[in-house]
Amino acid sequence: MNNKRLNHIVSKVNDMPILPSRINKIIEITEDPDSTIHDLEKEILKDQSLTSRILKLANSAYYGYPRKINTVSQATILLGFQTIKSMALASTVSKMMTGELKGYALGKKDLWTQSQTCAIISRYIATKIKKTNPETAYIAGLLRDIGKTILNHYVEKEYNAIVNRVELGKISFLEAEEEILGFNHAQIGEKIAEKWNFPKDLVESISLHHTPEKSTIDPELVSIVHIADAITMMMGIGLGADGLKYNFSPFALENLNFKPNDMEELVSYSHDLIVDKDSFDLT
């Protein structure tokens, strides 16, 4: 790949909008131990769409609260600061991930549906192992393929070359991306996460979700997203051009102490989760 195209891809990352100040403020409040529910409510009420989504989730069957939740402060007590943070971020990135991605053979909303699915399964795995913050896992799963939104144009132009390289070289779509374009979508996603000033564990999980054995900051989080991503693809959710060669990394399975029987149960339960995903949907 020539340097001119490589520099152009990097410039596209630089041109990508930063997170809106309102979203950054909500994230800042949720991460400040001295913040109050009133502080968070005041900021949320500035966004009518986010307010309605929060109230909808708080009143969903999943939480099963006996009385109707009418205020953001009540919803925040029920949902918690971390869930509110996930909702705010999801409501913003959904706009970036709903378009058609011809380079990856993904129709409108396919990437978003796929990303939501991966996020929901990631949260469930984190809850199951009782270690990683479930909402951090949700965000990591949601954004693991954000890099595709930028690489899409280049993949589309080089689609035949990439597919031929996959078939003839017997390598993954990810590896073919890197060979032909100079970057793969996970590396571009890493750069986007860095631009958004995400914590290093989130940046790493986006960058290495296909190669968890390379993780050094939080191998557990990266392993969670890797497994959730593989299950999503196995379920055929938004299956695109790069979704046909997915296996569980032995490193990720060992890291989370998952045995074959555990995986069978996890895949089965993931189907049930997605059938009822409206109860978990943060957008």
Rank of each mutant, 00 (worst) to 15 (best):
G141M: 03
E135V: 09
E135S: 10
A186E: 15
V203A: 11
G147R: 03
K195M: 06
R144H: 15
V203D: 04
V163P: 02
Q187N: 10
L168W: 06
K131E: 07
N197T: 05
V155K: 01
Q187S: 14
E135F: 12
N164T: 10
L181M: 10
T132S: 13
R144Y: 10
L174D: 12
G147F: 07
N164Q: 15
I150Y: 00
E156C: 06
P199A: 07
W196R: 03
K148D: 08
E204D: 09
I171K: 09
N160E: 11
F183D: 03
N184I: 06
E135C: 12
N133T: 08
Y154F: 12
N133K: 11
N160A: 08
I146W: 03
G141V: 04
S205W: 02
K130M: 07
V166G: 07
I162D: 12
V155L: 07
A186R: 04
I180Y: 04
I206C: 02
L174K: 10
V163C: 02
E179Q: 15
K157D: 11
N152P: 03
P199H: 00
I192N: 00
E179H: 07
I180C: 13
E177Q: 14
I150R: 01
E190A: 12
N184T: 09
A176P: 08
L143A: 06
W196A: 10
V163D: 08
K200D: 14
F183Q: 13
L151A: 02
L142P: 00
T149A: 08
E158R: 11
A137F: 02
P134T: 05
N197V: 04
I206K: 01
E190N: 14
I162C: 12
L143N: 05
D145C: 11
H185G: 10
L142G: 02
I188Y: 04
N197E: 10
I146K: 06
D201S: 10
L151G: 02
D201H: 15
Y138W: 15
K195H: 08
F173Y: 09
A137C: 13
L174S: 09
A176S: 12
G182V: 03
V155W: 01
Y138T: 13
Y159L: 13
E177Y: 03
R144G: 07
I146T: 06
P199K: 06
E175F: 10
E156P: 01
Y138L: 07
L174H: 15
A176R: 04
G147H: 08
I146H: 02
Y159Q: 11
N197A: 11
E204N: 13
L202C: 11
L208P: 06
V166S: 03
P134R: 00
N160D: 14
L143I: 05
L208I: 13
E194A: 11
N152K: 01
I150A: 01
N160F: 08
Q187T: 14
A186C: 12
P134N: 03
K130R: 14
H153Y: 08
I192E: 05
V166Y: 05
E167P: 00
V155D: 04
L151Y: 00
H153Q: 10
Y159P: 02
D201F: 15
A193P: 02
I146R: 00
R144C: 11
S172Y: 01
K191S: 15
N164Y: 14
K191L: 15
F198T: 08
F183R: 06
S207N: 05
A161N: 11
K200I: 13
T136Q: 12
L142H: 05
Q187D: 13
L202E: 08
A140G: 09
I150L: 07
